[in-house]
Amino acid sequence: MSLLQLQNLTKRFGGLVAVDNVSFDVPEGAIVGLIGPNGAGKTTVFNLITGNYRPDRGDILFDGRSIRKLPTHRIVHLGIARTFQTIRLFPKLSVVENVLAGRHCRMKAGVIAAMLRLPAQKREETAALAEARAEMAFVGIERDADQVAENLSYGNQRLLEIARALATGPRFIILDEPAGGMNDFETAKLIRVIRQIRDRGITVLLIEHDMSLVMEACEQLVVLENGAKIAEGTPGEIQENERVIEAYLGVEEE
């Protein structure tokens, strides 16, 4: 069963066709990689899924339901969480507050409840804090809970973004270059985290340039070039694919 289906997705920016008639399915419980050269339109696809951009044509089905016209926060509420290519944390706020941002959409208390500190509001706050701490522990940054987010190392900032995304209670998580700026040790840890995310029953779609991560972590790959899909298959198949080697990995010189 496909959790996410992209159907003939097209997005133009002026004369540039950033995403050109792209269709692919992401099966539930899979780890799928979206790869391609710089400027291939990978992040644009992500922005279309999360509602940051509206497709000019085509549709996006999540769990069989079209999310093409929904605002981003509604899409998050339905269970799609994301991280950003260029880290977008709340740099001046603490790590725990950053993760609590993710819990927000699963909470209810409004202005009046907060002013009166109703029992339900207090319970909700306590529960949210516990869940936020659990997500920090999951990615391994619980020791930095009270740090200001901008003081974390680059690798830990990426993990914090993942924790914030996980805190939204997603069924599907989109990671945009999660290993960007990480060293080998951090990347190895990241691969473990990605697998554990999947083991929690969360489907993963990721963009990554680090081929070792892609080949090791992903079960299925989709390759884009110039906005169009040029190949789809297992990492093994993609490595053999002439078209992909030519377009992306470069012509072999041996």
């Binding site: 605002p71 927000h104 959409c105």
Partner: peptide
Amino acid sequence: NYLREDDVAAEGSGINT
């Protein structure tokens, strides 16, 4: 505070900015 710091990230974290 989230939307003050970065409203794209806030919206992306599920907050109706």
